[in-house]
C-alpha cells in the first residue's frame, strides 16, 4: 500500500519463449475438448502449461505465445493471466511455498507457520531467497482446513504442518533440482 502502481511492464531482458513439441501437442489436445469456435476456453489450462514451461512464471513472450496458439489478441491473455492468483507475472523461485493464511488455518496456527517460514528462510512473504530456491507466499483458503496449518508447493499439499515438518520439507526440496509445478503428475 502507498506505493505507486506501475501500469506497464517491459519485455527488456526477458528470455524468448516457445512451447516444446510435447507441450504444443498437449495444448491442441486441450483445445479439442471445447466446441467449435470456442477454443478460447482453453486459455487458462494452456496458461498453466506455459507457466510450467517458463520457469514458473508468465513472461510477456510466454503470454504472446499462448495468444498465438489460440489465435486471440495478446491483451485478452494479459487480462486473464493477471486476474488469477496462481499465475505469476514475475520470476519466482524453484519452489513456491504457498502457506494458507485464511481464518480456518489461522485458528489452527497458520500465522505461526508463516512466521516460522519467514524466519527459517530469512525472507518475508512475497520474497524469494537469494539462491533462487524458494519463494514464500501467503495465500487464501486452499480447502484444507481440517488438516491445518498447511501449504501448497506445486501440485502437492503439505498438511498438518509443524515447524519441524516444515523444516524437513525445506531440506527435501533443497535436495531436488526439479522445479515444483502445479501441472506435475
Amino acid at each position: 500500500m502507498g506505493a505507486t502502481l506501475k501500469a506497464v511492464t517491459t519485455t527488456e531482458g526477458v528470455a524468448p519463449f516457445a512451447f516444446s513439441e510435447h507441450a504444443l501437442a498437449e495444448c491442441h489436445a486441450i483445445m479439442a475438448r471445447y466446441p467449435e469456435g470456442r477454443t478460447k476456453s482453453a486459455l487458462i489450462p494452456i496458461l498453466h502449461i506455459a507457466q510450467a514451461g517458463n520457469d514458473g512464471w508468465l513472461s510477456v513472450p510466454a503470454m504472446d505465445a499462448v495468444a498465438a496458439v489460440l489465435g486471440i489478441q495478446p491483451i485478452e491473455v494479459y487480462e486473464v493471466a493477471s486476474f488469477y492468483s496462481m499465475f505469476n507475472l514475475r520470476p519466482v523461485g524453484r519452489h513456491v511455498l504457498e502457506i494458507c493464511r485464511t481464518t480456518p488455518c489461522m485458528l489452527r496456527g497458520g500465522d505461526a507457520l508463516i512466521a516460522h517460514a519467514e524466519k527459517k528462510l530469512g525472507i518475508h512473504v512475497g520474497e524469494t531467497t537469494r539462491d533462487g530456491l524458494f519463494t514464500l507466499k501467503a495465500v487464501e483458503c486452499l480447502g484444507s482446513c481440517g488438516t491445518a496449518p498447511m501449504l501448497q508447493c506445486g501440485a502437492t499439499y503439505h498438511e498438518d504442518l509443524t515447524p519441524e515438518a516444515f523444516d524437513a520439507l525445506i531440506e527435501r526440496l533443497r535436495a531436488t533440482t526439479v522445479r515444483s509445478n502445479y501441472t506435475d503428475r
Binding site: K40, L43, I44, L47, E76, V80, Y84, S85, C141
Partner: peptide
C-alpha cells in the same frame, strides 16, 4: 477444466466466464 486461483469463480456466472477463457 482447471481454474487458476479465484474464489469468485465459485459464483456460477463467474465460473462460466472463466470456463469460456475470460476473467
Amino acid at each position: 477444466h482447471v481454474g487458476a486461483g479465484a474464489y469468485i469463480c465459485g459464483e456460477e456466472t463467474a465460473l462460466l466466464e472463466s470456463l469460456e477463457g475470460k476473467r
